[in-house]
Nucleic acid binder design. Structure first.
Length: 257
DNA sequence: ATGTCGCGCTAAGCGCGA
């Protein structure tokens, strides 16, 4: 079973790219981030026609997350991260599909740092810690995936020294990610490829993709029950080179049944 | 500091977030 995550950066603006990628790579389950579309503007029919049933949590202009499945409709468990009723950003959606619990997330960017946006990022991380702990405590197979907006280590940045003050790489951010994984989560890509430079995002500036000036910020965190099932992982890097493409590439893992 | 995008507002560029 192939499970993918893809920050599309506008689900309607990227629809041709998204549909081509679905057609060419046929993942079984897909988590999308940055829909940038209100609830009623999600392209449900086009996704259905492509063979996927979906649940989503939209928002005008920004954020927005979805879970797509080739088989059964994802059974939605929640569409917000617990812990702050005042937080109206659509950044989390959780579902069960065939006995697997999947949390799809779009962690706040947090720039500029320091500042209120960075404070929000760290608070969001605190809430994720709390919820992730409860997911582990249930003892079931769980996958947390999406755009974490964190490069976990220096290996995950093309030029670490120029990113140390950025909200995606500051010590507080890396510490928050390390604290999360220390609960018992496995970073799937890094476990399979411990020493390789693997990027999932290249910004639109300065010809970043052509220079491979990338970041690894889209992740798969596996609960202990899933680790023995991990059979492969990769980045569909070619998609980043297509016309009208997102600044992220799709990322995927393969789980044995 | 800049660079490049999509989206919303509103009808063409601009502000915002990334």
């Amino acid at each position: 079973m192939k499970i993918a995550t893809y920050n599309v950066n506008g689900v309607n603006g990227r629809l041709p790219v998204l549909l081509r990628w679905l057609e060419e790579t046929a993942p079984d389950i897909v988590c999308l981030q940055e829909l940038k579309a209100p609830q009623e503007k999600f392209p449900e029919q086009a996704i259905l026609d492509a063979g996927y049933k979906a649940i989503w949590h939209g928002q005008k202009s920004w954020n927005g997350v979805a879970i797509l499945s080739r088989g059964e409709l994802p059974r939605e468990i929640r569409r917000t991260l617990p812990g702050d009723p005042e937080d109206v950003h659509s950044r989390y959606i959780e579902a069960e599909i065939g006995g697997l619990t999947i949390g799809g997330l779009y962690l706040p960017n947090g720039n500029p740092a320091p500042g209120p946006k960075f404070d929000y990022k760290l608070r969001w991380f605190d809430r994720l810690h709390a919820h992730a702990e409860s997911l582990l405590a249930a003892g079931k197979p769980v996958l947390l995936t999406g755009d974490f907006n964190v490069m976990p280590t220096e290996l995950d940045v093309y030029k670490p020294e120029s990113w140390v003050d950025d909200a995606l790489f500051r010590p507080e951010t890396r510490a928050a990610f390390a604290k999360l994984t220390a609960q018992g989560w496995t970073d799937a890509i890094r476990t399979l490829y411990p020493n390789e430079k693997i990027y999932t995002f290249w910004d639109y500036f300065r010809n970043a993709f052509a220079r491979n000036a990338g970041l690894r910020i889209d992740h798969f965190l596996l609960s202990p029950q899933l680790v023995p099932r991990l059979a492969g992982a990769g980045v569909d890097k070619q998609v980043r080179g297509w016309e009208k493409t997102s600044d992220h590439a799709p990322v995927w893992i393969e789980l044995k049944d």
